[in-house]
Design a protein around this nucleic acid. Structure first.
Length: 187
DNA sequence: AGCGGGATTTTCT
DNA sequence: GAAAATCCCGCTT
């Protein structure tokens, strides 16, 4: 798994489409499929790692395959998968997922049904109970695991600009599965 | 369908 | 002190 994630964030981000997340909670086990990602790295003015390592972003500079979770807007947690070699501050933001197992628990946790329960980075964190306590967690073991799947066909990968940033907005570093209803927003 | 504002706290300038 | 990799509600068209 580590090897799969060791490349540059913008190369790994499309390869994470179609991969699965397994989340074990006391109420049950949730399984979802990643349908939308964004890449962030050091040479990117929009990235937390752009101005070097700090207490907040230190996980981004660690080994690939860890979870980088940060808190923003006073109420939202955002989940990333760390990529690249140790010492490189890069990660892939998971923006939207599609439910595969235990949809009922997802809908209960979110008090929403359908795509609205999972089509945004803070939404999926709420659905999967991901918060600061999960920062730095190794995603190869429970209670939150990344399951690598064979890459989806490149003709199904759409590329666009990232959402919610104010610097380097032109960079085509957002990737999502074409025509998937769980993507947060199309082009 | 689209716009505007409020929630609420950590981080860095 | 202000912005932030956001979400949701309520109001207007």
């Amino acid at each position: 798994m580590n090897e799969y994630l060791a490349g540059a964030a913008e190369d790994v981000a499309p390869k994470l489409l179609g991969c699965e997340l397994l989340r074990q909670l006391p109420e049950g086990c949730i399984r979802v499929r990643i349908v939308e990602t964004e890449a962030y790295h050091e040479l990117d003015a929009a990235s937390h790692s752009h101005r070097g390592e700090t207490k907040r972003n230190s996980v981004m500079f660690g080994p690939a395959g860890r979870a980088y979770v940060y808190f923003t807007y006073g109420m939202h947690n955002i989940f990333n998968i760390v990529t690249g070699n140790e010492g490189e501050g890069s990660a892939v933001l998971v923006r939207a997922v599609e439910p595969l197992e235990n949809v009922r628990l997802i809908e209960t946790r979110r008090a929403r049904r359908g795509p609205d329960a999972l089509n945004g980075p803070a939404k999926l964190c709420q659905a999967l109970a991901i918060d600061g306590a999960m920062n730095g967690h190794n995603l190869s073991k429970p209670p939150l695991q990344l399951i690598i799947k064979p890459p989806i066909h490149s003709s199904l990968v759409e590329v666009g600009t990232r959402i919610g940033i104010s610097r380097d907005t032109y960079q085509p570093w957002r990737f999502f599965i074409a025509n998937n209803p769980y993507v947060s927003r199309a082009l």
